[in-house]
């Protein structure tokens, strides 16, 4: 690859390094709060048509956010969602040129937004949707299931599991799983859906190429969180019983193994 780089001087020999200035002015006008803003020096036709670029940019970013947070959009309504998406678009700092994982800080942005205060469960639903999206695109790894533990029956308490890259635990004071499920595409929208008034925990996994959402009760949540943190099964069990004296480990352990949240284990110190 041979390159002849042209000197950055125009025909008159004047230094012609205003390229960065052009981009700054254009980008600033795109994000200007005034929808009629345009860069200096534009003729009437160019200034009118600048709105096409402005619309493309705003729509591109806002639709990417809507695609990442469909349930939040349904819960708050389209008009409100796009108004907040426009604010988020201006507020969020550095972004990558891939929209696949756009909207990382949206739940935090919502939690700090005064208009969201009357509906405090919305940021937690956003956390669940973000975890779902991250799980979708996380690294692949083989899943450890019940059959992988054959022969370990007497040493289960000493096992430490490795969290699958896609495993996410979202703990909330609100019924986020019920809200999320009731607002999935394809769910019957006729009449009202009863949403229980309770705290819910979502376990998100992607055992193969399909994301799964499992609801855990309080004891299972403590147990799963301890295992994800690398604690032994025995120590995790003690924590769960402390939280919920009626905690029954056998079905919960089977549920967690079936969910695909682990990708390996060690027998620990013996």
């Amino acid at each position: 690859m041979t390159v002849t780089v042209q000197a950055r001087h125009d025909a008159n020999g004047a230094k012609n390094d205003d390229n960065a200035g052009f981009h700054r002015a254009f980008a600033n006008a795109l994000m200007d709060e005034n929808p009629a803003a345009f860069p200096a020096g534009f003729d009437p036709q160019a200034s009118r048509r600048f709105a096409i670029y402005r619309n493309n940019v705003h729509r591109g970013l806002q639709e990417a956010l809507a695609a990442a947070y469909p349930v939040v959009k349904t819960l708050v309504g389209e008009g409100f969602f796009y108004a907040i998406a426009a604010q988020y678009m201006r507020a969020e700092g550095k972004r990558t040129p891939s929209l696949a994982l756009y909207g990382k800080g949206f739940a935090r942005f919502l939690a700090q937004h005064e208009a969201i205060a009357p509906v405090p469960y919305i940021p937690d639903v956003a956390r669940l949707e973000r975890a779902w999206l991250e799980a979708l695109h996380e690294a692949d790894a083989p899943v450890t299931g019940a059959t992988d533990l054959a022969g370990m029956e007497n040493r289960l308490a000493a096992l430490h599991f490795t969290a699958h890259p896609a495993a996410r635990l979202i703990v909330s004071d609100f019924p986020i799983v019920s809200l999320w499920r009731a607002n999935q595409p394809g769910v019957e929208k006729s009449g009202s859906v009863a949403i229980p008034d309770r705290a819910e925990t979502a376990l998100i996994t992607r055992p193969h190429f399909k994301v799964q959402t499992v609801m855990l009760d309080a004891g299972a949540c403590v147990f799963a969180r301890a295992l994800l943190a690398g604690m032994s099964v025995g120590a995790a069990y003690e924590g769960a019983v402390a939280q919920d004296p009626a905690f029954d480990v056998t079905p919960v352990f089977a549920q967690l193994l079936a969910s695909g949240m682990f990708c390996g284990f060690t027998a620990g110190d013996e």
Binding site: T96, P97, S98, A100, L101, H137, E138, D140, A141, F209
Partner: peptide, 10 residues
Amino acid sequence: ENYMVSGGPR
């Protein structure tokens, strides 16, 4: 850009 992810179905 649509495939700049760590893994998964895409």
